[in-house]
């Protein structure tokens, strides 16, 4: 079969794996964006910068405190989430009563400042980060590097855990209800402003977690977030804002489609997601899983 298509199974499965890895990052980042947008009504353009900060914190604590990758997986998201709480409390919460556009502009400003500071301090060439899980498995049809397998599994666990928390727990029912009608949920005695702050911190922490996972694969670079975030916004537009599972499925699905495009028509691989986005916008403006607001 592979001979008929003129491609080798190694190339196919290799690109599929790369697609799954990219999809894992798309899913984690678009999930955080969707949760933040749902409750805060803010398009968090700083998401990519926060992902980059996660990777930098991981590199930093390893370099200066000897904290290994596994510790950084916890330390970095918490540190960046605390940074998110400060941003939310000092700046973002003043914009909730305004149009989305203001939040977008403010967080875009954050990106320019944060990335600029990191480029100034660390240069744009990037810092290496050692692979914490060297080696790999020979699966017969392909070679699976251990760490890449771990990234796909870790991302799935985090995404499905988030889905479970939002769709199946009491805390999640507060979040869903407050996304629909924050005034009424607050009038039931729930401290909605605190919930908003913690939701932003959670979304930001998720971005930083993805950043730590990315460090051993892509190295640690001040512009790593900007390169990714444009694609992630396209993923969010395609999936729509209404559904948590939709973000996860769309993220992984588009990663795989992108990978397959590299095998079958490499010239289109960097544009295929945007072509899909244009088609989805024409046919279903609210996105594949979205509900019109």
């Amino acid at each position: 079969m592979f001979e008929l298509l003129g491609i080798s199974p190694q190339a196919l499965f290799g690109q599929l794996l790369i697609g799954l890895i990219n999809g894992a990052f798309y899913a984690m980042l678009s999930l955080g964006l969707a949760v933040i947008f749902g409750l805060l009504n803010v398009i968090n353009f700083a998401h990519g910068a926060q992902y980059m900060m996660g990777a930098f914190v991981a590199w930093f604590v390893l370099e200066y405190a000897g904290v290994p990758f596994w510790g950084a997986l916890i330390v970095a998201p918490v540190a960046v989430a605390i940074f998110g709480v400060i941003l939310e409390q000092v700046f973002i919460k003043r914009l909730y009563h305004l149009d989305h556009l203001y939040g977008l502009l403010l967080t875009f400003g954050f990106v320019l400042i944060i990335e600029g500071l990191f480029r100034y301090k660390f240069g744009s060439s990037g810092q290496p980060y050692d692979n914490p899980l060297p080696g790999g498995q020979n699966l017969g049809f392909m070679f699976l590097p251990n760490y890449r397998g771990f990234v796909v599994v870790a991302s799935l666990v985090v995404c499905l855990g988030t889905w479970f928390m939002i769709e199946k727990t009491k805390l999640g029912s507060y979040l869903r209800a407050a996304t629909e009608n924050p005034t009424l949920v607050r009038a039931f005695g729930i401290n909605v402003p605190r919930m908003v702050t913690l939701t932003y911190a959670f979304g930001v922490g998720l971005a930083a977690f993805a950043g730590v996972l990315a460090a051993p694969i892509y190295q640690v670079n001040p512009t790593m977030g900007s390169n990714l975030i444009i694609i992630v916004f396209a993923v969010v537009v395609i999936g729509g804002m209404g559904s948590i599972m939709g973000s996860i499925v769309t993220g992984f699905g588009l990663g795989v489609i992108e990978g397959l495009t590299k095998v079958f028509y490499p010239e289109a691989s960097s544009t295929v997601i945007f072509v899909i986005m244009a088609i989805v916008l024409l046919i279903r403006p609210a996105g594949l899983f979205g509900t019109a607001k």
């Binding site: 009491k170 029912s173 869903r176 209800a177 629909e180 949920v185 039931f188």
Partner: peptide
């Protein structure tokens, strides 16, 4: 709330 079922609405 549309995103909650009857029981979730009741116990919210």
């Amino acid at each position: 709330f549309a995103s909650l079922n009857v029981e979730e609405n009741l116990t919210l």
